[in-house]
Design a protein around this nucleic acid. Structure first.
Lengths: 341, 341
DNA sequence: ATGAAAGCGCTAACAG
DNA sequence: CTGTTAGCGCTTTCAT
C-alpha cells in the first residue's frame, strides 16, 4: 500500500521470511503452503502492494492470460456487441483482451494480419467474421493456438453464429405468410463473397424460401448494400427510382439497411407498412425504437460463448471449442403487414 | 519460414555466427552493427521466422509497447469510434491495444479498475469519459504512466474533446436563429453528474444561450434520457404525453436521443420539421440517413489524437500530452425549420 | 563492430 | 511444507 518503488516477489519473500517459491505458491493459491504461512505472505504482499509482473510470469510459464480479438471494425453494431460479450467473459476469468481492428473487411492488405502479431502475445484468438486470405488463415492455424470464429464460418475454425440461411428464410417466410408475393431483396455485398460467406447464406435462405413458395427472385428488385444504413439509403434510392413496379415487401439482409430503406421511404411519402412491408435481420438497437420487424440475434451472447469455449480449452478441456449455432428469433413489430393490393 | 519450433534469439545468433547482443541490435535497427552483418542476421532471422518474444523484451526493458483503453462500453457509437481511432494510430506505431470495458458508467464497483490491471501491462492509458471514483483516479495517477482522457474531462488528466458547452450553444442558437422561442430539451442523465460532466456542460450551453436570448428553460419541456435511442423514445413519450403545450423545437443532447424523438414523433403523426424542429449533437452514423440536423463531432479523430499524444510522450517528448479541444460543426439537414405558428 | 555476462521477475522441478 | 536452483528470452553495460 505504500512507496513508489514497485515490490518484486523477492521483496515479499524477504519481508515474509520465506523463499520466492513459497511466495509464488501462496499468491497463486497453490497447495503445499501452510495456512499460516500463506496468510502471512498474503498480508505482506498486500501491504507492499505486490502484483506479479505479467511479463515475467509469461516468460516463465509460456502463458499470457491474454486472448486476442481480431475484428474488421469495432465501431459497428455487431462487432461492438461481440467484443463486449468477449470482454465480460474474459474479465470474469482474469484474462486480458488484446484488440486488433483491421479497419475493413479486406481493405488494406499491407497490414496483413500475420502470425507475428499473435505469437507469444496471446493464448487464443477469436476471429470476427471477416474475409481472411488463405495465407492469413494458414498463418493463423500455424500458430497452433485455439481459434474460434464468431459471426460467420472461417475455414478450419469452429465458429459460433446463427444459421444465417435459416434466419433469412424465417424473415422471408414471414413476408410470405402475410400474403406477399412481390418481394424485393436488399442484400449484402459480393466482392468478398469467397471468404465472407454471410451475405451468400442469407441470400440463399431468401431465394430457397421463395422457390419453395413457387416464386423466384426478380432481378429488378435485387439491390446491393453493404450492411450499413448509409448504403441502405443508397440502395433504396436505386430501388425506388427504378421504373419497374414496386414490390409490396422487401427483405433486407441487415437491420441497418432496412432502417436506411425506411428513412428513404419516408422521405418519398411511401407508407410503411401500408405501401411497403420491410423486414431485416439482427435486432439492431435502433430496430425496436423504429418499430422494425426483424429476425433477431444476440451478438453479446455470441462473444461470451466464444470466450467461454476458449477459456475452457485453455484450462485443459480439449474439445471445448466447437461449432455452436445459436438461435435466432422472429420479432414482429410495425413494419410488416399484409399487402394492400 | 519453416519448422514448428519457435526460433529464439539464440538460434538466430548461432545460425548467423554472432552473439545474441548483435542480433538484438541488428533486428532493432540499432547502430554499431556493420551493414553486412546486419544483412546476414536479418536474412537468417527471416528464414527462421524469428520474432522477438514480447514478454522477454518487456521484462528486460520495462516497456510493454501496449497502450490500454478503458471504456464504459465498447458497443456505443462514440466509444466504438474512439477505439477505432486509437487502434489505427497504435497499429501504425506497432503498439498493442489492451481493452477494458467496464460495462457501464459506474455500475459494478466490484470490478473496480485498480492499478493492478495497469501495472506492468501497459505503458500508457486512454480513459474514455466516464465517472471514476476518487479512489480509482488516485490509483490511476499513482501508476505514474501517461494518461489521457477522451470525450470528457477527467480530474487531473489532459483530455481531448469538443467544447460541449459551445456545441450545445451552437445547436440552441441555430434553433433561435430559425425563430424558435419555445424550445424543449432532451438532456442526458444526472446520476453520475459529479464525475461524468458532459451532460452538465451541454445543459449549461443550452441554458446560457437561452438566457442570452431573454428566454429561460421551461421545466415541463425538460426531459431526461441517457443518450440512447431507446431512452430517447421514452423521453419523447413523456414529452408528448404531457398536457402542457408543445414546444416548437427540441434540442437533444445526443443524436441517438434525437432519433428516438423522431421515431416517436412519426408514430404520432407529428411532422418534422413542420410541427416540430429537432436538433442533436454528435453526427451519429444514422443522422445523415435520417436527415437529422446536428452539431457534429469526430470521435475517431479524438482517438487518434489521444493515441498520438501518448505515443509522443512515450517517445520522450515530455509535454506531448495536453488538453486538446477539437472543433465541432453545425450540420443543417432536414429536421429543423422555422416554426409554423 | 562485436561479444560476455549480468540481470529483468517469475515459475517449476527437484531436494530436503 | 519449504527452499534451491535453473531457466524463460531478451537487453544492456562493459570489455575488447
Amino acid at each position: 500500500m505504500r512507496g513508489l518503488m514497485v515490490a518484486s516477489i523477492e521483496d515479499v519473500a524477504a519481508a515474509a521470511k520465506v523463499s520466492t517459491a513459497t511466495v509464488s505458491r501462496a499468491i497463486r493459491g497453490l497447495p503445499r503452503v501452510s495456512p499460516v504461512t500463506r496468510a502471512r505472505i498474503l498480508a505482506v504482499a498486500d501491504d507492499l502492494g505486490y502484483v506479479a509482473s505479467p511479463s515475467a510470469s509469461t516468460l516463465a510459464t509460456g502463458r499470457t492470460r491474454t486472448i486476442g480479438v481480431l475484428a474488421p471494425f469495432v465501431d459497428r453494431w455487431y462487432f461492438g456487441r461481440v467484443i463486449e460479450g468477449v470482454e465480460q467473459e474474459l474479465r470474469e476469468h482474469s484474462y486480458n483482451l488484446l484488440l486488433f481492428s483491421l479497419g475493413g473487411y479486406a481493405s488494406d492488405r499491407q497490414r496483413l494480419f500475420n502470425r507475428n502479431m499473435v505469437r507469444k502475445q496471446m493464448d487464443a484468438l477469436v476471429v470476427l467474421c471477416l474475409s481472411l486470405s488463405d495465407q492469413e488463415l494458414e498463418q493463423l492455424h500455424r500458430t497452433e493456438i485455439p481459434l474460434v470464429a464468431v459471426g460467420g464460418p472461417v475455414s478450419g475454425c469452429s465458429s459460433v453464429r446463427i444459421d444465417d440461411s435459416l434466419a433469412a428464410a424465417a424473415a422471408t417466410q414471414h413476408l410470405l405468410d402475410l400474403g406477399h408475393r412481390d418481394i424485393g431483396h436488399l442484400h449484402g455485398g459480393w466482392e468478398d463473397q469467397l471468404n465472407f460467406t454471410v451475405p451468400g447464406l442469407r441470400t440463399e435462405g431468401f431465394e430457397s424460401t421463395l422457390h419453395a413458395a413457387g416464386l423466384g427472385p426478380r432481378s429488378e428488385w435485387e439491390v446491393e448494400g453493404d450492411y450499413t444504413v448509409r448504403n441502405g439509403v443508397r440502395a433504396a434510392v436505386r430501388l425506388f427510382d427504378s421504373p419497374s413496379p414496386m414490390p409490396t415487401a422487401v427483405f433486407c439482409a441487415s437491420d441497418e439497411m432496412a432502417l436506411g430503406l425506411m428513412f428513404e421511404a419516408r422521405r418519398r411519402g411511401i407508407r410503411i407498412p401500408e405501401d411497403l412491408s420491410i423486414i431485416g435481420i439482427d435486432d439492431h438497437e435502433f430496430s425496436e425504437p423504429a418499430g422494425l420487424t426483424t429476425v433477431g440475434q444476440d451478438p453479446t451472447a455470441h462473444g461470451s460463448i466464444a470466450a467461454r469455449m476458449l477459456i475452457a480449452e485453455l484450462a485443459g478441456k480439449t474439445g471445448a471449442v466447437r461449432d455452436s449455432v445459436v438461435a435466432h428469433q422472429l420479432i414482429v413489430r410495425g413494419t410488416t403487414a399484409p399487402p394492400c393490393r
